[in-house]
Simulated scan of single mutants.
Amino acid sequence: MRERWVRQIADPDLVLLDEAVEFAVRWHGNQTRPAGEPYVEHLLEAVCVLVEAVGTTDIDVLRAAVLHDVVEDTECSPEEVRERFGDRVAVLVDWVTKPAPTEGQTREEARAAYLARLQHAPDGALLVKLADRLSNVQRLDTHPRPAKRRSYYQETVRSIVPLAQSHPWFRQWYAVWRETFGHLAVDGAHARPQ
């Protein structure tokens, strides 16, 4: 993919992106996605969407896209991200990292709070989240658990699709996606996006 980005991203920024990819690969190791593909493919796909579809060239946003799951899904700490990639990247990664439940809070409550918090995220963090979720939901039918397919579809419609409204490319993509995957709505019916 890197070869496809040389026209859009300056060489020094490509080097910075390479460093983030190497860091993510080291931390994610042999992790795979639910359908079995290497985890790094998801990270690079999020960057690909931002560069090739949306036209994002902000290197901190692109590095945050590569690193968006490193704190949530590995033993990497937020401090390690900050030390290696700076404050802005660390802040963007923090916005898209689901926190562990606090004392007395269920996983579902923690997840709901995380999704609600995204409504106040800076634009760069929203771009990362929208690209991350796009990568996750475009192959939702391959998830091994049907109940998870339905719940993830519903969560995306309820909490992520509204975030896409201020970004024309994502707004259009999610509208098409919603129609394509509408069969995952609980009752089998789905309303057209408003």
Rank of each mutant, 00 (worst) to 15 (best):
D141V: 07
A191M: 04
E52Q: 03
A64W: 00
R150Q: 09
K98R: 13
V21T: 07
E52F: 00
A131G: 06
H167G: 05
E37K: 14
D69S: 07
E37I: 12
T74M: 02
D11V: 13
R7I: 00
Q31H: 14
E72R: 11
V81H: 03
D187C: 06
F170T: 03
A189F: 03
E72D: 04
H190Q: 13
D69T: 06
R145I: 13
L134S: 15
G104Q: 11
A100S: 12
R192Y: 04
W173P: 02
L184V: 11
F23Q: 10
E52L: 01
W177A: 12
A100P: 01
L140Q: 02
A46E: 02
R192K: 14
Y114S: 00
A10R: 15
A175R: 03
A191F: 11
V176S: 13
T56E: 11
R33A: 13
R133V: 15
T32M: 07
R158T: 12
A65Y: 04
L92C: 05
E179G: 13
H190N: 09
D69V: 00
C48E: 10
W177V: 06
S159E: 15
T74S: 01
W169R: 06
E108V: 01
E109H: 05
A191I: 03
A35Y: 12
V91K: 02
A35K: 12
A147C: 05
E103R: 14
C48F: 09
D73N: 09
P34Q: 01
P122V: 10
Q138V: 15
P122L: 05
A112Q: 05
V186G: 10
G124L: 06
L140I: 14
L126T: 06
R111F: 11
R149Q: 14
L14N: 02
T97W: 03
Y152N: 11
G124T: 00
P12L: 06
Q154N: 04
E155T: 11
S159M: 13
I59Y: 05
H68K: 08
V51P: 00
M1N: 11
R150A: 10
L140H: 02
V186F: 06
T180I: 09
V96R: 02
D69C: 01
A100Y: 03
E19D: 15
G104A: 02
Q194A: 13
L118R: 10
